[in-house]
Design a protein around this nucleic acid. Structure first.
Ligand SMILES: [Mn+2]
Ligand SMILES: [Mn+2]
Ligand SMILES: [Zn+2]
Ligand SMILES: [Zn+2]
Lengths: 148, 148
DNA sequence: TGATAGTTGCAACAAATTTGCAAGTTGATC
DNA sequence: GATCAACTTGCAAATTTGTTGCAACTATCA
């Protein structure tokens, strides 16, 4: 996840909504906010435990579901390049897409204006009210192109 | 899946590549080619069995993996609106996106030129060679908007 | 500080997918 | 059409990923 303006405080958003801030939730949102890569539930579980927090995977799933439903994190498929877990990242105002190299697994993020054009088009053509847009691209990165 | 020009014959593409056409593979590509909705592995398993073909789920998974690797079908997440299975459809020349209603589960397909613009942009900005682009949108359909 | 509603961990379950291997089938060749 | 090697399948078991019910615990507020 590229340099984001590290606006922390999912925590305050949660307590504003009257949601209790437990140790477990604190560590999880902390990890998600400060992550420099996309995390899946097991990542979160192990990283939290490394920091000495007692935590069960049930709670990880429950917390991620809650954050997703509140619109505070996005769930990514990342093309399941390896395993079938889903990945999570904080939700940004400005959308970006994910490009995965099917050869080395590297994930690249890219900001593009195509996304808002697309949203306009969808709204206009279909009348759907858009909640989230997920664009994921399978590709071969320049490094891997050279190697073959 | 909206009216496609029913170009059959994944079968011949497979045998051209020297891949054996077993009963199981025949029925599976048949079902995928003639489907009027997105299918997941269990759909395929049951539909094939209904047609009297002996088939195991292992074979369904193996066949789908093969077709995907050959670039003949696309795998869709469809936002896992209900369950965590993945869905499959034949690959078209002209791409389309999938819009799922988070309230009723309906899936809408939409053709858009944004996709090829996006590909151009990715190529130019990153040098990645694109294999597939998957855009999936979570939204609320007009019907469900009225109901709330 | 206590009451209370919300949250957690645990164990068991369920769903989705993969693996190893023996037995069966395909398609090329004669 | 019969033969055969290579490929493919089904089956049973395992793995991976995610969910549920419930008793014990804890965050928040008065
Ligand atoms: Mn489709
Ligand atoms: Mn998925
Ligand atoms: Zn690569
Ligand atoms: Zn709807």
């Amino acid at each position: 996840m590229p340099k984001r303006n590290q606006q922390p405080e999912l925590a305050s958003k949660l307590s504003d909504k009257g949601i209790r801030l437990t140790k477990q939730r604190r560590i999880l949102i902390d990890l998600i906010e400060s992550a420099n890569q996309h995390l899946h539930p097991s990542d979160l579980l192990y990283q939290a435990r490394e920091k000495g927090v007692k935590l069960d995977r049930t709670t990880v799933y429950r917390t991620l579901t809650m954050l997703k439903e509140l619109g505070l994190v996005e769930e990514l498929d990342l093309l399941h390049l390896n395993g079938h877990e889903h990945y999570y990242e904080i939700r940004h105002d400005r959308g970006h897409i994910h490009i995965g190299c099917i050869s080395c697994g590297k994930i690249l993020e890219l900001h593009t204006d195509c996304l808002s054009d697309l949203c306009d088009e969808i709204r206009q053509k279909t009348g759907f009210i858009i909640k989230t847009v997920r664009t994921e691209v399978a590709a071969v990165c320049p490094d891997c192109q050279r190697k073959t």
